[in-house]
Design a protein around this nucleic acid. Structure first.
Length: 268
DNA sequence: ATCAGCACCTGTTGGC
DNA sequence: TGCCAACAGGTGCTGA
């Protein structure tokens, strides 16, 4: 469920609760497997201190001292909550018990979420690409990444090995904002169109972060609060409803098995 | 090397 | 009202 803006919101919300605290205990479910195959044995993090919380792609990352990291991917229904004396619930998959009585609880109804303990270059270990919000991600770099690829641009945006962090909602919204049809072959977009798309993507992501992310169904932040950006969606989830610009009904198609929404008039 | 299709899970919703 | 198929913000594997 959570994409870049939701993960960013969660990471920022966790920081005041966890930074500077020591991990006293780490308890976690075993089935279905919670840890990625490339993970170090998870229990090595016990006794380490959390030096920071950040986002890498769609992962929430706890930086530890001595140097090590714990990355958590929420997939569709994962939630991360922090609080003093916070209790586990029925869907709890893991709990970090920290110094000072603070608990971090990872809940996940569908059990798709995954964790990974590692050290060194996190992007290498997790296999994720560049960040769309990074100033080093330029239209020229994006062009190098797309090459002459024949993949539909919307499917390309969802490939975490290229750009990391974009999911279904923001891919749809950014393509609408840029006036680009989701089915366009990514390698055939001009550099100008790619630049427009990257700028639109950044605008949409920053805007969504400012609004605490999108709560379409069950996303909640680190303190259990819903996001507000769903009120700003222009196409996502609006099949059959009028385009806010031209009143044409928004169309829904399926690309790579994902619902894809666009305006047939405003997007070419 | 790609890529469509399905698998992984459970809860909610919409159509009949 | 009740049942059940379809669908959901994500990713990874398999086989063509």
């Amino acid at each position: 469920m959570p994409e870049l803006p939701e993960v960013e919101t969660i990471a920022r919300g966790l920081a005041p609760y966890v930074v500077g605290r020591r991990i006293e205990e780490f308890s976690h479910a075993r089935r279905p497997p919670l840890f990625l195959t490339q993970s170090l044995p998870p229990d090595v993090i016990r006794g380490h201190t959390i030096s920071g919380v950040r986002r890498a792609g769609k992962y929430v990352v706890f930086d530890l001292d001595p140097p090590l990291w714990l990355a958590i991917h929420l997939r569709m229904t994962g939630t991360l909550r922090a609080g003093r004396g916070l209790a586990p619930g029925p869907a709890t998959r893991a709990v970090l018990r920290l110094s000072g009585g603070v608990n971090v609880v990872f809940g996940d109804v569908r059990k798709f979420g995954r964790m990974c303990v590692g050290r060194g270059d996190i992007r290498d270990v997790l296999g994720i690409g560049v960040d769309p919000l990074s100033p080093t991600t330029t239209p020229q770099l994006v062009r190098r990444l797309t090459g002459r690829g024949t993949t539909p641009v919307k499917v390309w945006l969802l490939d975490q090995r290229k750009l990391a962090g974009v999911g279904n909602i923001y891919a749809c919204e950014a393509l609408y904002a840029a006036g680009v049809r989701p089915t366009r072959r990514v390698g055939k977009l001009s550099l100008t169109q790619l630049a427009r798309l990257l700028a639109a993507l950044r605008r949409v992501l920053r805007d969504a972060i400012r609004h605490g992310g999108s709560s379409v169904d069950d996303y909640l932040d680190a303190e259990g609060k819903a996001g507000r950006f769903q009120k700003h969606h222009r196409v996502y989830g609006r099949a059959g409803k009028p385009c806010r610009r031209c009143r044409t009904p928004i169309r829904r198609i399926v690309l790579a098995q994902r619902g894809t929404f666009y305006c047939p008039v405003c997007q070419h």
